[in-house]
Design a protein around this nucleic acid. Sequence first.
RNA 1: GUGGGUGUGGCGAAGUGGUUAACGCACCGGAUUGUGACUCCGGCAUUCGUGGGUUCAAGUCCCAUCACUCACCCCA
Length: 419
Amino acid sequence: MEIRKPKGTNDILPEEVRKWHAIEKTAMELSDVYGYQEIRTPIFEHTELFVRGVGETTDIVGKEMYTFEDKGNRSITLRPEGTASVCRAFVENKLYGDNQVHKLYYMGPMFRYERPQKGRYKQFHQYGVELLGSNHPVTDAEIISFATELLKKMGLIDLELQINTVGCPVCKPVYRQVLIDFFSEYKEGLCPTCNERMEKNPLRILDCKNKECIEIAKEAPSMTEHVCEDCGPHYESVKGYLDAADVDYTENPRLVRGLDYYTNTAFEIIAKDFAAQGTVCGGGRYNGLVGSIGGKDVPGIGFAMGMERIILLLSEKNIFKDSKKILDYYIIALGELEEIPAFALLKKLRDHSYFAEIDYTGKNFKNKLKYADKSGAKSVIIIGENERKNKTVMIKNMETGQQEEIDLQLFINNLKEER
RNA sequence: GUGGGUGUGGCGAAGUGGUUAACGCACCGGAUUGUGACUCCGGCAUUCGUGGGUUCAAGUCCCAUCACUCACCCCA
């Protein structure tokens, strides 16, 4: 039986990797401009980190974690998201010690145990940023505008930025109770999962896709009516900064993020014409998170974007141009005696940064030329008995078909002059 | 976890119970000597995901199973 890749994982073939390089490059370059530095954390962590950080009531912790016991009977989990790890590293390495704002980004694989489908995999990749150490609303706006700008730079269009405020430890519980009171009236009409949500996380009822639930939720009181005196102005202020930076946004009072740690500002960036897995980027503020995993109470905000989804969207729109490298020279040695000087020449070409290959496979000359043609090389260098004896090379232009025998040493000397 | 769709050579794809399983691309060989592309000729699935069943006869019907895929939940 042939061994196949585990469901929900992907081999990223060379042609595809070029696309990854393109968006990774854009991400890294813009990170520099915005002042974010890369951080690399382990791909697995103690399970406890995610349970405490992401939250026990979330789907991620409840049913989507890749958890196993290692040989020392420790419970280990493949990271399902990046924020908890970054915060852990922030605390563990005492980065808070200098009392400065820390701006970090990360890129890499995440793991969630769920049924794969278009734009959703068990192993997927995120680029994410975290800004730790400030609760100033301008940082909310910075993070959001960075996210929108980055997607734009990558080439995505037709995106919608949705923002909301989900409250803080002061007003969230109050609003939560308001929602419970409201939805209790409609228990019958709500779907079974929403009835469960009533106890675990009533905010998520607002986000339910079920038709009846949507109808009921339309009438539900919104967070904005219940924010406390800190959160209200904070949210207003964030919007003011966004306006100042010309960032277009839509307010969505029913936007609820699936992770427990979010406070205040929450946002998502959605691809309009990508129905199923339209969320390309999601983020928000998480002021209690660092404290909850054992650090001092440092506020934070960040976002994560799904690389596969970005690539999917860009590919559908044919954004990627063909960046395949064109072969400068393809060297053909006609006989065994010619192979040594041919290989020596190959090295010379590469020493001068030419993209060159030598024929490994061809049987007869005709065949070798055919491979040369297939390789897409601009020119072919032929070394046969005559050339060997004359100390020359035959340079054939594959486009015009014209060829010219020139002195080997002269050819090499010209290489030096050209580059 | 739940529901739908699909499974024919490396890829795409005909075939809707009856002789040798179309075709296109790719690939391989040839059209004699050290010249590719274009053209021409030839080759390339004892077998239709797997296992069972119905039938005189199955890629075509039935059942099971596996795989892939899409959607729901949820999310990136």
